[in-house]
Lab assay of single mutants.
Amino acid sequence: TSQSKEFDPLGPLPPGWEKRTDSNGRVYFVNHNTRITQWEDPRSQGQLNE
Rank of each mutant, 00 (worst) to 15 (best):
S2Q: 04
N33T: 13
R43A: 01
L13G: 00
K19F: 04
Q45W: 09
Q45F: 04
Q45V: 15
E40C: 13
R43S: 02
V27P: 09
T21N: 07
Q3M: 08
E6H: 02
H32S: 13
Q38T: 14
R43Y: 00
Q3P: 06
S4P: 05
N33V: 02
P15K: 13
T1P: 04
E40F: 03
I36M: 14
R35L: 06
N49E: 04
Q38N: 04
W17V: 08
H32L: 08
T34M: 15
Y28H: 04
T1E: 14
E6S: 14
T21A: 06
N31F: 01
G46Q: 06
S44D: 11
P15C: 13
K19N: 15
S2K: 14
D41E: 01
S44Y: 06
I36A: 05
N49K: 15
G46W: 08
S44T: 13
E50H: 07
N49Y: 10
S44R: 10
D8M: 04
P12N: 04
T34V: 08
K5C: 03
D22G: 14
G11A: 09
V30E: 06
R35G: 10
Q3R: 07
S2I: 13
N24P: 02
F7Y: 10
P15M: 11
R20M: 14
T1S: 08
Q45D: 05
Q3L: 10
S4Y: 10
W17K: 01
G16E: 09
V30W: 09
W39A: 09
E40Y: 11
Q38M: 07
L13W: 02
S23R: 13
F29N: 01
E6L: 07
T1R: 04
T37R: 04
R43M: 01
D22W: 04
G25Q: 11
I36D: 10
P14R: 02
V30Y: 15
Q38Y: 05
S2Y: 13
R26D: 15
P9R: 12
Q3T: 11
P12S: 10
E18C: 12
S44N: 02
E18M: 03
G25I: 00
H32K: 08
W39D: 11
E6P: 07
S4N: 14
N31E: 06
W39R: 13
F29D: 03
L13D: 00
G16W: 10
Q47D: 06
L13E: 03
R20V: 10
P42G: 00
W39T: 11
Q3V: 09
L48W: 10
P9A: 10
Q38P: 00
R26A: 15
Y28P: 01
Q3S: 11
P9K: 02
L48F: 12
R43L: 01
G25P: 00
T34H: 10
N24F: 10
K5T: 02
F7L: 09
G16A: 12
P15I: 05
R26K: 15
H32E: 12
S4A: 09
K5H: 13
S2C: 01
E18Q: 05
D8F: 02
N31T: 00
T1W: 03
D8E: 08
N33W: 01
Q47C: 02
T1A: 02
G16I: 02
N49V: 09
P14I: 01
R26S: 14
F29R: 01
G25L: 05
P14T: 04
G16S: 11
R43H: 01
F7Q: 11
G46E: 14
N31M: 00
T34N: 05
N31L: 00
S44L: 13
G11Y: 02
K5R: 02
L13K: 02
S23T: 08
S23A: 10
G25Y: 05
E6I: 01
P9W: 03
V27M: 14
G16Y: 05
Q38E: 02
P9D: 02
S4D: 15
Y28M: 07
N24G: 13
H32G: 11
Q3W: 02
E18P: 00
T37M: 12
T21I: 04
D22S: 15
N24C: 13
P14Y: 07
G46K: 12
R35Q: 07
G11R: 06
K19E: 11
T37Q: 09
S44G: 12
T1N: 08
D41M: 02
L13S: 02
D8R: 08
H32I: 03
N33L: 00
L10Q: 10
W17M: 02
V27E: 11
H32V: 09
S2L: 05
F7M: 06
G11W: 06
P14L: 01
N24Q: 12
R43V: 01
F7V: 08
F29V: 01
P42T: 01
N31C: 07
F29G: 01
E50S: 00
P15S: 11
R26H: 10
F7S: 13
V30R: 08
E6Q: 14
N24H: 11
V27C: 14
T21P: 06
W17A: 03
S23V: 10
P42W: 00
E6G: 07
Q3H: 03
T37K: 01
E18G: 09
N31R: 01
Y28A: 05
E40S: 14
P14G: 10
N49D: 11
S44K: 15
D22C: 11
Q45T: 15
D8S: 12
E18D: 07
S2N: 15
N33D: 11
V27D: 09
R43F: 01
R20T: 08
